[in-house]
Design a protein around this nucleic acid. Structure first.
Length: 104
DNA sequence: TGCTTGACAGAAG
DNA sequence: CCTTCTGCCAAGC
């Protein structure tokens, strides 16, 4: 992966995340795929954590495919609940109700 | 250069 | 809810 690609990838990630409407969530894998790197889901999380500027994005609206919140980020769930997102009894986000993908 | 980590995905116990 | 396994890939040591 070249520096130019990495730059574009991070740019796309921020662009996509910034479009997530309130009360909706999307997944790392989806974002990675939309950015053109289907297998780089991990890098999405890495980007959101290390990239300056990602903090102004609704990055808490990004969860994994089963609605599981990020380990080591305790604020994740409260932030989602504050937006009216419903959590199932198993502790996961109700994806079939809140899942969203770009350009819809 | 090679091994370990991780805001991951998904299946399994 | 938790832990563990495999596959994935960039970053850190």
């Amino acid at each position: 992966m070249t520096a130019e690609e990495a730059c574009r990838f991070g740019d796309d990630v921020m662009n996509i995340v910034s479009q997530i409407p309130r009360g909706k969530v999307t997944t790392y894998g989806t974002i990675a795929a939309l950015a053109g790197w289907p297998s780089h889901a991990r890098m999405v999380g890495r980007t959101l954590r290390y990239t300056p500027g990602a903090e102004q994005l609704p990055c808490h609206r990004v969860v994994n495919k089963v609605g599981r919140t990020a380990p080591g980020w305790m604020q994740h769930r409260p932030l989602l609940e504050a937006e009216g997102i419903n959590f199932k009894s198993n502790g996961h986000v109700d994806m079939q109700r809140h899942y969203w993908e770009p350009d819809t």
